[in-house]
């Protein structure tokens, strides 16, 4: 008989740019070791996961991270009093730092987390990625942070050339082929995500992604490389396939060994025509396509659950090549009373 555990997680926004919460929840529900009750942590009433009762057993509304982590901690204490949470998995980039800062207090309450350290989190920020690459011997395209339009144009002239990648602090990236495009994308990204904006050398090649898990002691517990086979108008992968490329797995192993990364992550990589691998970005949590790791034979969220609760888990090296994910949209029918209950009480 499997042991019962309760896991709270966020990222229930399975919309056109989906959060990873539902994929993580599905993976945990298929854990071979635990019978997992999933508690959803939602920020807004229209996050579809709130109403997906097969995946999420119960959902609570929580305050935005911008309200400060003390406010969030108080809310978690209320939820914990009702649900006895064993583990919390934050799935948004923007909430990771508040959770990293709260992890000691959460541990005192008996709630586990499995997060990178503050230093690891900061080191892989887009603006710090070049230093990160130098420190750990990883090829990274030249990148520099820009704090204003004039600053950006000067840095493009001094450090790189067109085309150049113009990237938001947290999300979104565009290729600018001219000064005018760079200014347009700067303003667009700064208005949406704030500054700095990151300028990155454009590397011509094929883009790949790796979903991986590190145990925090330098061991790669699992890694699955994937190539997106369908990309939406907004640049999101809507389908992908697992591939056999040892260079990509090796990059994940090297990065996790060197940094002693703790937790799930996604590497965004580009391979140029000479087969050189460049690290473009590190997302410090599981990606929305993490359920593909389950399909390919590596249930990385379930392995992370074991690690977080103090159990041993063996590193996995095998995965099935040629496994695909294809997303779809689906109209749920929701009773008004469910919507009303969540809107008024913050629970469903």
């Amino acid at each position: 008989m499997k042991k019962s555990v309760t896991v709270a997680l966020s990222g229930l926004n399975v919309v056109d740019s989906p959060g990873p919460g539902i994929s993580v929840a599905r993976a945990l529900k298929e854990s071979p070791d635990f019978d997992v009750k999933i508690i959803g942590l939602a920020y807004e009433v229209m996050e579809p996961g709130i109403y997906m009762r097969n995946e999420i057993d119960k959902t609570y509304q929580v305050p935005f991270p911008s309200k400060g982590h003390e406010v969030l901690l108080e809310r978690i204490k209320e939820i914990h009093a009702k649900e006895s949470i064993d583990l919390i998995i934050p799935n948004f980039d923007a909430e990771l730092m508040p959770y990293i800062k709260m992890q000691k207090k959460l541990a005192d309450l008996g709630i586990a987390t499995f997060l990178p350290t503050e230093e690891q989190f900061d080191a892989r920020l887009k603006g710090n990625l070049q230093d990160f690459g130098q420190k750990y011997g990883i090829s990274v395209p030249k990148s520099v942070a820009a704090f204003g339009v004039e600053d950006m144009l000067r840095k493009i002239d001094n450090y790189t050339q067109y085309p150049v990648m113009v990237k938001g602090k947290f999300y979104e990236a565009y290729i600018a082929h001219s000064r005018e495009q760079a200014v347009y994308y700067y303003n667009k990204l700064a208005a949406k995500w704030g500054t700095p904006i990151i300028l990155q050398q454009y590397v011509k090649g094929r883009e790949y992604n790796v979903c991986a898990l590190g145990d925090g002691k330098g061991t790669l517990i699992g890694a699955v490389p994937m190539r997106k086979t369908y990309i939406t108008d907004t640049g999101k992968g809507w389908a992908g396939i697992t591939i056999k490329d040892d260079d990509l797995v090796e990059m994940a192993r090297h990065m996790i060994e060197q940094t002693q990364w703790r937790g799930g992550l996604e590497l965004e990589l580009i391979k140029d025509e000479r087969e050189n691998v460049y690290l473009i970005e590190i997302n410090p949590r599981f990606p929305a396509w993490v359920y593909l790791t389950v399909g390919a034979g590596q249930n990385q969220p379930a392995d992370m659950l074991k690690l977080a609760l103090g159990y041993e888990t063996e590193p996995r090296t095998h995965f099935e090549v040629g496994k695909m994910f294809i997303r779809y949209s689906y109209d749920m029918i929701v009773d008004l009373q469910d919507f009303a209950q969540f809107s008024s009480t913050g629970e469903l």
Binding site: T229, I243, V321, G322
Partner: peptide, 16 residues
């Protein structure tokens, strides 16, 4: 890394 199926589907497992 190239595989071909009976119905002529060719898959490059390294590139996807």
């Amino acid at each position: 890394n190239v595989a071909v199926s009976e119905n002529g589907f060719v898959f490059n497992a390294q590139k996807g």
